[in-house]
Amino acid sequence: MANEEKAVLEVEHLSKQYKKGVYASQDVTFNVNKGEIFALIGPNGAGKTTTIRMIATLLKPTEGDAKIGGYSILTDAAKVREGLTYLPDEAGAYKNMKGRQYLQFMSEMYANSKEQAAEFVKTAEEICKLGDRLNDKIETYSRGMIRKLLLARTIMPKPLIAILDEPTSGLDIINALEIRRMIKELAAEGMSFLLSSHNMLEIEYVSDRVGIIAHGHLLETGKPSELLEKYEAQNLEEVFEMVVNNSEIL
């Protein structure tokens, strides 16, 4: 934990109850460091989205706290929002807008000046690689195109941390591959990511560290290679199985 002071996201004992007494997410603690890709992995209903929404200041935690760039989601939500961007799972965009209009609109939400907004749009146009299709209505886009557009939107303000909930779910192999490649390239430039996925195999290749989450509990964190070694497993799916079976909490 040598680079603890470099953590851009610190999650501390975060819990959420939608209904009294039922935890959707319980006592989740982890860090994401600068330039790191951290992935929450677990099956559907494990509590990934719940945890992510709390960090993105959309849900109020029942217990615990999270800090982005040192600001608490409980007391400094406005500051936290300046440091993050969030791509919800299965997200869409405004259908009546053209791709470029969407980027323009979203850039205005994050920028402090017209010049900065223009700069954001330019960045996004490069990242999404949609070319002339940006002049078409979003209605006419395929799933993969929308995801690329949204990913570019998430990246363009160069946030401290980009939070992507299931960024590749619902995409075909080619598109998923492209998205993963984009994320890796951006992280190499120093950007931090918090991802989630229920597909444990694909996440092995994209993330620097993973957190295994099941039934709302974060059971294990570590580098994929370390975890494979520790559990003497072939892949992260096997790791997940062993972690869940060995768990004393569950």
Binding site: A56, Y86, A91
Partner: peptide
């Protein structure tokens, strides 16, 4: 409802506005 179902509202409400 469109904004909610497309999750553009989540994006908007997590933005600094």
């Amino acid at each position: 409802s469109a904004e909610k179902l497309d999750k553009t509202l989540e994006t908007l409400l997590s933005a600094p506005v």
